[in-house]
Every structure is written in C-alpha cells, then in structure tokens.
Amino acid sequence: MTQPSEADADALLAAMLAPPDRPGDRGFVQRIDRSIDAQAAYKRARGRFWRSFAFEALAAGALLAALWLLSSAPLLAPLAGPGEWKLASPLLLVLLLWLGTQRWRQA
C-alpha cells in the first residue's frame, strides 16, 4: 500500500473544503443589508430620544428648582406655604404630559 503524498492530501482537502459552485443568495444578502440599515436607524433614533429625554428631564428639574427657590424667598414665603406644594405635583404632571404630546406630534 502506498501512502499519498502531502501534495495529494492537500489537493484532496482543498477539494473537500471548497465552497460549492453555485450563484450567491442575493435575497439573503439584501435581507442582511436591510437588517443592518434598520439597526443603524434604530440606534440613531434611540440616541436622539435619550438626548431629548435628558434635556426635558433637566428642564423639568429646573422648573421644580425654580418653584422651590421662589417659595423660599422671604417675599413669597407667606404665599407658598406647605399647603401650596400639593399643587406642584399635578402641575408638573400636566407639564410632562404636554411635553409628551409635543414629542408624539413631531414623530
């Protein structure tokens, strides 16, 4: 029995491991390309959302800080007692809902 040479073994392996001779799957490539484009668009939209959300949260926090500072001013302190803060949460909720509706109108 003769042993195959190294060149014959390499040729046999190359023939066994070669990709099949057929045309490429164009539909698969297009689906992958669309998926990559969709993921990139989603990533951009998500980034825009978080930037906008951070800005709106900062604005709401600034409004609350302004209300708090105004209520602690000596001139306005009698007008803004502890009972007046009960109105702050519904007013803030209305403000946040308004900001949310503005966001949905832009989309």
Rank of each mutant, 00 (worst) to 15 (best):
Q3C: 02
P4T: 03
A9N: 14
D10T: 10
D10M: 13
A11T: 07
L12D: 05
L12A: 15
L12H: 04
L12F: 06
A14S: 15
A14Y: 01
A14R: 15
A15R: 15
A15S: 14
A15C: 07
A18T: 00
P19D: 03
P19H: 00
P20K: 04
P20L: 11
R22Q: 12
P23F: 03
G24T: 00
G24P: 05
R26A: 02
R26Y: 00
G27E: 07
V29C: 01
V29N: 00
Q30A: 08
R31D: 00
R31L: 05
D33S: 04
D33A: 14
R34D: 00
S35W: 01
I36Q: 01
Q39I: 00
A41S: 10
A41Y: 02
Y42N: 05
R44K: 13
R44P: 00
R44C: 01
R44V: 09
G47H: 06
G47Y: 09
R48H: 08
W50M: 11
W50I: 09
R51I: 03
A54S: 09
F55E: 13
E56S: 06
L58G: 14
A59G: 06
A59I: 08
G61E: 03
G61Q: 04
A62D: 02
L63Y: 07
A65M: 15
W68I: 07
L69N: 05
S71F: 03
L75V: 13
L75P: 01
L75F: 15
L76R: 01
A77N: 05
P78R: 11
L79Y: 12
A80N: 14
A80H: 05
G81F: 04
G83E: 06
G83L: 08
W85T: 14
K86Y: 11
K86D: 15
A88R: 05
S89K: 10
L91E: 08
L93N: 10
L93I: 12
V94E: 08
V94R: 13
L95V: 14
L95F: 14
L95H: 13
L96I: 09
W98E: 13
W98G: 15
Q102N: 13
R103W: 09
W104F: 14
Q106K: 11
A107F: 11
